[in-house]
Design a protein around this nucleic acid. Sequence first.
DNA 1: CTGTTAGCGCGTTCAA
DNA 2: TTGAACGCGCTAACAG
Lengths: 334, 334
Amino acid sequence: MTVTIYDVAREAGVSMATVSRVVNNNPNVKPATRKKVYEAIERLGYRPNAVARGLASKKTTTVGVVIPDISNAIFAEVARGIEDIANMYHYNIILCNADKKKDKEIRVINTLLEKQVDGLLFMGGAVTEDHVGAFKSANVPIVLCATSDDHNVIPSVDINHEAAAYDAVMKLIDQGHRKIAMISGTLQDPSNGYARFQGYKSALESAGIAYDESLVRIGNYRYESGVEAMKYFIELPERPTAVFSATDEMAIGAIHCIQDSGLQVPGDISIISVDNSRMASMVRPQLTAVAQPMYDIGAVSMRLLTKLMKKENVEQSKVVLPHEIVVRQSVGGI
Amino acid sequence: MTVTIYDVAREAGVSMATVSRVVNNNPNVKPATRKKVYEAIERLGYRPNAVARGLASKKTTTVGVVIPDISNAIFAEVARGIEDIANMYHYNIILCNADKKKDKEIRVINTLLEKQVDGLLFMGGAVTEDHVGAFKSANVPIVLCATSDDHNVIPSVDINHEAAAYDAVMKLIDQGHRKIAMISGTLQDPSNGYARFQGYKSALESAGIAYDESLVRIGNYRYESGVEAMKYFIELPERPTAVFSATDEMAIGAIHCIQDSGLQVPGDISIISVDNSRMASMVRPQLTAVAQPMYDIGAVSMRLLTKLMKKENVEQSKVVLPHEIVVRQSVGGI
DNA sequence: CTGTTAGCGCGTTCAA
DNA sequence: TTGAACGCGCTAACAG
């Protein structure tokens, strides 16, 4: 039924070792022999069995990717960066959604490890002790991707979320805004949530603006929660003149909420966010945002992982990619 | 270093066959023995090697997914549907982007097959003879997902793209429009391109409207190409009163182009599209669109694949999911 | 440059 | 209910 390396060997009149050599591009094969083997392979339609190879060589050329949610544009972009680089280095990726749920994350990490992936890219919520434990039980390299690690012990690639948020809010302050609201993600989320919230607070603080709890709403990163939050802000006795959103999508919800209630962006209220997904230029007014280089985060972390897997020594195991503010039309002066 | 089933066997004082049985939940094990084995597993931190298991059992519990581009929201949604169901049936997925490029598709299909996936989900451009050849050389089930197959010989899950387009254009016609333009995808793309274009033409025809070549522009599915196409239409001596876009994203580009040139949607020009991605309600005016149930297409095709992999007999190997028109605000009467 | 021989870690008969 | 033994298809020494 299935044709094996042994069949090819017989067909070509050589040993299976020789077939293995030509299949793996080992130079120590006489061209004539190589040709014979290729012909036999062709004739038989031989396809190497990567599972057997994996068992024998202890390498699978596949890496595990745990991701919160592939249907989220941000993560999908990261995933594309990962896969492109993986592909370039002849790795395949096993993708697992874990929705930032700790138990699900631990579970998929384990099944990925059972599948003998050569490395693991982890994108998730908080990195807890249990995560670190699971990582340590693996004897393959791990890199955190767009995820922070308080313990600072696992290689990672990310932006500085707090600084990004700080810069965004500073932009608002520079334009003269003082009453600045924030649509945040859950504070349980270290990077997209907590860190960005901290950035917001410290920007206010460094401008001497008192932090006002009533000016912060927690959303779930989605469009609808952006409009909900904004609705709340608009109904405030003294409504903010600007709002900082932790994500583009919530920002777009906020913009539409403002417009739907007869106000103008940025005329009445300015909006800024962090992400700069492709959607940012797909709104009117176009969204001013701090750019988070998602594709690059994916690509760089995969590249780092390849180095780790090859046991090359890396100078920098914690890389922080730069962010920059992309000025479009949603922020105005006061 | 790595603890194997043999180590566990020794630790528990049983044979490796017994360990294998408890790991695989074989009922023929005395509870006391089972307990001993579990304890040994715990003590040693044993993790079954799925590669070895795959070689021995000839099943990997992983399926291959070839997808055009995971960073495209539409496909990302399908992928999520796939992964959720895969997960439910304890499969993992290896994801490969192939950008609808034939040679890349063939290549990844082959590496996926080398990796001994138990099944394959194919989402791509045209299904050529070469594709069919590759599929046949596999001795695992394949299902086409959101992709059509002219030869009609491979199991598939999709909507009827032509009918969806027809319905969309009919909606416009029902509102009194006669001068209806189309922003199409490339006609080389069977489903998103050619089929939707055919639907457009046949809707016109059934309404007795002459087809006008100058009213069709080919885009690349992206936002920018939507604004390009619309710019062209607006500058026409007699501009259309409605436009049908093959995708949401191009439709949103068209809406913004119209608005940026001082016209109104739907006051001056109506817009309708096929997709109904989450973005459709993230524009003003909100986009009227024919809904393509992407998540379901993914979920159903994965479900179908599980049946095929279990050799259950399926009644319907070509499933066409229903589409429906979601009326929002971008279409008006004339 | 080529062939022989051991495993890789596990599932699966077949006996007991 | 349990164990012994074989083989899955291939890589990796080691010889020659």
